[in-house]
Design a protein around this nucleic acid. Structure first.
Lengths: 150, 150
DNA sequence: CGATAATATGACTTTTTTGTCAAGTATTCT
DNA sequence: AGAATACTTGACAAAAAAGTCATATTATCG
């Protein structure tokens, strides 16, 4: 159960845009330098975010990437879904790699229920968090997050 | 954000043992046949569960694998941790692959807070579920799971 | 005691995911 | 227009994860 590299780095790059005053653009090169990633990789990540409609690019000199919405209007859930599916189920029951024709648990498979329940549960957490929350001071945020668990 | 193949298939194999009357063993071959997986793979998965102390094996003729505890005494969390870490943080901040010496977000990194909050959140869900829950009828379980989200 | 049924293990192959590259297109500045 | 700056794209290379194999060990049955 893990966050993928693409999700992690993609989020970081998006936050670099979120740090800026609204409407301001930043180049791939700058983001790459700040995050310590290669420009090629940052390009790929920002393009994924672009396809999902979270950012857009301006070509040519003075170009760069810009957020399409304010940080408070973009959830962590949207971001993660743009970078890699939140899949804890389905990909097994439907695209089963074993030798049987269909998933052996097809009838009355409780595993499916657990995974889909977990997926909803995670989505709720992610959708309750916006990029604006992530721009906050770490201490403030972590104390607020602790309350969710009670 | 996803469940790995090892976690999925490992859980399935463990459930095959959980279905049995307590103390009964089942061979790798049988589990493999029931799950539609190769025996080599099932061996690997059951060994992982064995190392974590969830099951043990009996060698030789009439041998096989047996649960160490009753299904109600084994949580989904333990199972997943035996098969692959529930890692949503740390592996980036400490083992950062970028070109900078340390994670650029080292000071006041809210990403870390979010991930560790999410990890605790997920763990709670998983630790509240036992294998006995997974042996239940799918319909009964799914309605019960829905309540957790309210 | 030998044959058979079973698990044990680590190295190896395949597949998927990550990350890079090279060649191309658009925009602005002079 | 030409040069410089930036994004675009799909194919490729590298790394990690998934899954297999060959060989060894252990236990039971006759």
């Amino acid at each position: 159960m893990r966050i993928t590299a693409q999700e992690e780095y993609g989020l970081r790059c998006l936050l670099q845009l979120a740090y800026l005053p609204q409407g301001k653009s930043v180049t791939v090169k700058e983001v790459a330098a700040k995050e310590g990633l290669s420009t090629a990789y940052v390009e790929k990540l920002l393009r994924l975010l672009g396809r999902a409609g979270l950012v857009h690019s301006v070509r040519g000199m003075r170009g760069g990437y810009v957020m399409n919405r304010a940080p408070a209007q973009i959830t962590l859930g949207e971001t993660i879904r743009a970078l890699g599916t939140i899949q804890t189920t389905g990909h097994i029951c439907s695209a089963f790699t074993g030798s049987k024709d269909i998933c052996v648990h097809f009838n009355g498979c409780s595993i499916r229920s657990i995974w889909s329940g977990l997926t909803s549960y995670i989505q709720r957490y992610l959708d309750d968090t916006t990029l604006a929350d992530l721009l906050e001071d770490e201490y403030v945020l972590s104390t607020r997050l602790a309350k969710r668990l009670t």
